[in-house]
């Protein structure tokens, strides 16, 4: 296995005058779980389609599993598209077996495997039902199973969690972790940060077709300054004297005459010191919160403006 499952090098995709993906580069190490995050319309799906060679990039190069063409290694790739769909009249097991056989699995083996996986993921009773008789969540599970039935080395999941209930979202997470544990590479796109936060090794954040961030979760969190949230009826002006405090922002009024204030800290900032200063200056504290920023915060921090703009467009 190559060191990188996927190398995207300066890829651009234009539709007429509209640039969907703009000079994007990313390397996905083999065996990692990589989250492709970004607001709606950021170019995630277009990027994934280019990786699969369903679309051709306008410029730039893509190497998948060491090959310059995904078609040469298509049997080793599994793909779950964003918009899920199956043949309505086909039976669940036959749908899975069909997709697996299109990935080079012998037809008999594909059928056996289909039943096995449907059983494993709790759809054993529906294996012989037609897809049209399944609920949306069930048929989505069938499609996920169809995407991984041939045990691919490299799995691309476009919005795998959408449409699943919390229990099945959990199942989906386990499925991804399980594949990574067996040395497979998984890329998935989502705009639900909590999933990415729980299972990703690395994330790529795209906005307006451009890379906004690429790295590990910790690196992502480091992109926004440390902060503490303080609830107090008193003024926090005295904290400004501390060298590590960059900015003090009132977030909202809280009942009882106090307000919630965000204190942004520099690299050397220490929440402990802030607390001490508060106490020594006699500032009454209603609350004091210095949890790490979540991926959600990172997302809003990095691409919040773009996301809002995209929505307004």
């Amino acid at each position: 296995m190559t060191e990188c499952a996927l190398e995207i090098e300066g890829v651009t995709k234009r539709y007429g005058t509209f640039t969907a993906v703009d000079n994007l580069s990313v390397r996905v190490p083999a065996g990692s779980i990589y989250g492709f995050l970004g607001p709606n319309g950021a170019g995630k799906t277009t990027t994934l389609r280019m990786v699969l060679e369903i679309l051709k990039p306008t410029s730039g190069s893509i190497q998948v599993l060491g090959s310059s063409s995904a078609l040469d290694v298509r049997d080793r790739i599994g793909y779950l598209p964003e918009e899920k769909g199956l043949y309505k009249k086909m039976k669940a097991w036959a749908s899975v077996a069909y997709f697996a056989s299109l990935k080079g699995m012998p037809r008999k083996a594909a059928a056996t495997r289909a039943y096995e996986l449907l059983n494993r993921y709790g759809l054993g009773d529906f294996a012989d039902s037609k897809v049209e008789a399944l609920s949306k969540g069930m048929s989505q599970k069938v499609q996920v199973i169809g995407a991984i039935a041939h045990d691919p080395d490299f799995v691309i999941l476009d919005e795998p969690f959408s449409g699943l209930d919390p229990v099945n979202q959990q199942v989906m997470e386990e499925l991804i972790l399980d594949m990574a544990a067996r040395g497979r590479t998984v890329i998935f796109s989502t705009h639900v940060m909590s999933h990415a936060e729980r299972i990703c090794d690395r994330i790529l954040l795209i906005a307006r077709g451009q890379k906004a961030f690429d790295g590990t979760l910790d690196e992502a969190r480091a992109t926004i300054p440390k902060r503490v949230l303080i609830g107090s009826p008193d003024s926090l002006e005295p904290l400004k004297e501390l060298p590590s405090v960059l900015e003090i922002r009132r977030v909202e009024e809280v009942s009882g005459g106090s307000s919630l204030v965000e204190v942004l800290l520099g690299e050397a900032g220490d929440p402990q010191g802030i607390l001490q200063t508060c106490i020594s200056k006699g500032i009454r504290l209603k609350s004091f919160d210095h949890t790490d920023p979540t991926l959600h915060d990172v997302f809003v921090h990095l691409v919040g403006d773009e996301a809002r703009e995209a929505r307004a467009r």
Binding site: G85, Y87, L102
Partner: peptide
């Protein structure tokens, strides 16, 4: 049309040209 409207075609195109 079924393949197109149900978006099955995208999965197919990741497997066949």
């Amino acid at each position: 049309i079924e393949e197109k409207s149900n978006r099955i075609v995208e999965v197919l195109l990741s497997s066949v040209t």
